[in-house]
Amino acid sequence: MSYKHLGSRNSGAPGWLFQRITGIVLIVAMVGHYILMHYTPTSGHSFASTFERMQNPLWKVFYLSFVVVGIYHGLNGVWGVVRDFKMKRWLSMTILGAMIILGIAFAVFGFMNVLVF
């Protein structure tokens, strides 16, 4: 009737908890990012100010974590939606595979953008 969770823990609890924790982290990070980029245009999104900010390793760490947490939360959410529908195991596994590839591609793209500075 149903299959167990993927991964070593064999329980959905860590994934469920982590989705909530990353959700809270994202709210804080997104609000910070939004204020920086849209409400402080002079210090926010000009190339010079962005370049200067990104010389600080803490900002780099912030944006790298933002990319990882955002991709994890988003794709894990989509995977949750996929599992809300009854479907053949091969189909759900194919969707999962496609999502993992997409996630890696987004992560590489995000990392390149952060590390280019």
Binding site: M1, S2, Y3, K4, H5, S11, G12, A13, G15, W16, G80, R83, D84
Partner: peptide
């Protein structure tokens, strides 16, 4: 109930 068709399907 700790399966993908168990408790985690409750939203």
């Amino acid at each position: 109930i700790d399966t993908s068709d168990g408790v985690w399907r409750c939203h």
